[in-house]
Design a protein around this nucleic acid. Structure first.
Length: 686
RNA sequence: GCCGCCUUAGCUCAGUCGGCAGAGCGAUUCACUCGUAAUGAAUAGGUCUGGGGUUCGAUUCCCCAAGGCGGCUCCA
């Protein structure tokens, strides 16, 4: 649709002007117009010749407008209840919105209830949103009592388009949105805002909810004061709100912290310390499978396996630059070996030892342990290296953010002219392996430096490295998202982001280019012409950390792992005690074939056993009773309740070992390779 | 690290307006021997996260600490 009204009326003549409303007003789903690419309020006059399209409330832009307008309603409610509250910013975010306030005391759950009531009143009043362009002077006068708004006015133009602050003062005119009474036209409340907004608060309906309160630093810097932030969610209808809340609940059900406790996989004993996990036997099995398979693949991929200690003298981290650039992330040193005489004088100088936060310096020493030839390159050193980082207490989160972790860390030393090929090879290696673990939906992120002083090395080297990474990333054909300022202190990186089963994305593998460490360690090799050359170093973690990857897989599969990763692959359930011996014989044969089996010989009834092990997500329940024993067979029950009864034992063993070897996910009878034998009858009852 | 909230049995949670603590699941024992998601009964299990304070008396009120959760900042 396009608006091409040739007769733009003169202002003040009382003639009908063209607006989004005159064009699309019939359709109540339309809440704004997109005019020559920009989002406009529905009542804003559209100039002749402009191209205008409708924006419906259910579209991504429409939802953002809805959420943004709901944030304004929240802010109005807050200032009605507490006129002393000063306004921060209130942008839409994924699935919702927030608004920051400077208030004397934080919001309580009771406050949220009162605010929700007030918001309902505002929503039902159907206040119109009115846009007005103001000069900077007018704005300063209007918001004289709002120090944060004044700061934003001063920032105008300086705020990056992508920042949350740009929602208040974007490029273009300074604008104010007033909420006016539908009948009297009286201005009830107003906010500095670039808009656009819904036509009126009545469009909001009842598909919103305030979700939580939190503190947030003003403009995202911990040097600034903390404001109180209220988060909310908003949808076009109550039904969509309910669907959203349902999705949130489903995600909570697969939270790895919850599943880790329920399935007896790991724990964080208080006695050990925050962010330090122990893996229980069942979690240990999964972890060992993850690691063992990774080792196999690295072996085939031409990696050499190395080991290094967890602790080292300070000197090593001075050489590597960690103490200069990364000290905040390291545990404080242990001062050892100092001797003091009776007078208190030091008679022997002590040494500082640090827990290692990264493995690279150790691997550099391995590289440097003897002369290297160009014939050895690329040299790929791999280690499951445990590292310790002193993360701030507030940032720890389950296994995804810990203080002690094991990286599947590799350092690749290559000649300059091998860099590109090795990067490409490494990325492909990464994709292949991740697919084997069941993740196959990727995009890439290119993390580069910004002008922050936290980055080491000179600009030229950074540019070269960044350009090379960008080139390699582009050649994968995958979507590439820029991440300025996200680089490691020693170099830029590509990270592989994976989408999980419910569409969340996780940063997994990182591939980092490093020209700095080889210099610091004076690494070199002898080239074909006999000259000494400096290798380039590539840092590569595939899982990132084993613990975090474990958590991601646990959430991805919601605890129901593919057979090869399942801690218990088969549980045998005799119909009655009498059949336990027969079943035990079958299980022995499976165990001999390398399958992880258990016999449930407890006093529980068979139905109870089925329930218990189904809740544990065991992929194969093997049931044996009179009929099976007579036939030399076994009966399968799968996670979803489907069954395959009377399968000859030999065939059953083949099906199970086959599923493991093929890394199959088995949730239902049909997931198994079709059985050829005559005794195979797949029942589909749930 | 900062802000808010939370911490009662192995787990999930009731509860006490300040007066010697309760359920379900789980565990143990006994009976039952059963054909595809919970058999029944009995028993054990808690210095109510830790330390101070107020009080005749604190699991309950106050302060501090630890741990957890949600955010901010930071990051694998």
């Amino acid at each position: 649709m396009s608006a091409t009204d040739p007769t733009v009326p003169q202002p003040g003549e009382g003639v009908q002007v063209t607006t989004g409303r005159t064009l699309f007003g019939e359709d109540r789903e339309v809440v704004a117009a997109r005019v020559d690419g920009a989002l406009w309020d529905l009542d804003r006059p559209i100039p002749a010749g402009a191209h205008a399209e409708p924006v419906t409330i259910g579209s991504p832009d429409g939802l953002s407008i809805l959420r943004h307008s709901t944030a304004h309603v929240l802010a109005q409610a807050v200032q009605r209840i507490n006129p002393e509250a000063r306004l921060g910013i209130g942008p839409p975010v994924t699935d919702g919105f927030y608004y920051d306030f400077d208030v004397a005391s934080p919001f309580t759950p009771e406050d949220l209830k009162a605010l929700s009531k007030e918001m309902e009143r505002i929503q039902r009043a159907g206040q119109r949103f009115e846009r007005r362009v103001v000069t900077e002077e007018e704005a300063r006068e209007l918001f004289a009592a709002e120090p944060y708004k004044l700061e934003l006015i001063g920032l105008k133009g300086g705020a990056a388009e992508s920042s949350d602050e740009a929602v208040e003062v974007g490029a273009g005119d300074l604008t104010v949105y007033a909420n006016v009474d539908r009948q009297t036209g009286e201005v009830i409340w107003q906010d500095l805002c670039r808009g656009p907004h819904l036509p009126n608060t009545g469009v909001i309906k009842n598909g919103w909810a305030l979700t939580r309160v939190a503190a947030a630093y003003w403009r995202g810097s911990e040097k600034n004061p903390q404001l109180q932030r209220i988060y909310g969610t908003a949808w076009p209808s109550k039904d969509e709100l309910r669907e959203y809340q349902h999705r949130v609940e489903e995600a909570a059900k697969r939270d790895h912290r919850k599943l880790g406790a329920e399935l007896d996989l790991f724990s964080f004993p208080d006695e050990i310390g925050s962010g330090l996990a122990v893996f229980h036997p069942k979690g240990g099995v999964i972890r060992r499978q993850m690691e063992d398979y990774s080792r196999e693949r690295h072996e085939v991929g031409g990696y050499s396996f190395v080991w290094s200690p967890h602790i080292t003298k300070a000197n090593l981290f001075q050489t590597s630059g960690h103490l200069q650039w990364f000290a905040d992330g390291m545990f404080p040193p242990m001062h050892l070996d100092e001797e003091v005489n009776a007078e208190g004088d030091v008679t022997r100088q002590g040494q500082d030892y640090y827990l290692k936060p990264m493995n690279c310096p150790m691997h550099n020493l391995i590289y440097r342990s003897r002369g290297r030839s160009y014939r050895e390159l690329p040299l790929r050193l791999f280690e499951f290296g445990s590292v310790y980082r002193y993360e701030k207490s507030g940032t720890l989160a389950g296994l995804t953010r810990v203080r002690g972790m094991t990286q599947d860390d590799a350092h690749l030393y290559v000649a300059q002219d091998q860099v590109k090929e090795e990067l490409t090879r490494t990325l492909n290696f990464v994709f292949d392996l991740l697919r084997d673990y069941g993740l196959d939906d990727f995009y890439l992120e290119l993390s580069t430096r910004d002008d922050s002083p936290k980055f080491a090395g000179n600009d030229e080297i950074w540019e070269t490295a960044t350009a090379t990474l960008a080139e390699v990333a582009a050649e994968t054909g995958l979507e590439l998202v820029p991440d300025p300022g996200g680089a490691a202190f020693y170099g830029p990186k590509i990270s592989v982001q994976a989408r999980d089963a419910i569409g969340r994305t996780w940063q997994l593998s990182t591939v980092q280019l490093d020209f700095d460490q080889p210099n610091r360690f004076g690494l070199e090799y002898t080239a074909a012409d006999g000259t000494k050359q400096r290798p380039v170093m590539i840092h590569r973690a595939l899982f990132g950390s084993v613990e975090r990857f474990f958590a991601i897989l646990l959430e991805h599969y919601a605890g129901a792992f593919p057979v090869w990763l399942s801690p218990v692959q088969v549980v045998g359930i005799p119909v009655a005690d009498e059949y336990a011996d027969y079943l035990s014989g079958v299980l022995d044969r499976l165990r001999a074939a390398g399958v992880r089996v258990e016999l449930d010989a407890s006093d529980d009834r068979m139905q109870k056993k089925i329930r218990t092990h189904t809740l544990e997500h065991v992929p194969f329940l093997l049931i044996a009773g009179e009929k099976d024993r007579d036939a030399g067979a076994i009966s399968f029950r799968f996670r979803d309740g489907t069954t395959r009864n009377g399968v000859p034992v030999e065939e059953a063993i083949g099906l199970i070992t086959g599923a493991i070897a093929q890394k199959l996910q088995v949730g239902t009878a049909d997931d198994l390779e079709p059985a050829g034998g005559a005794g195979a009858a797949a029942a589909g009852a749930v």
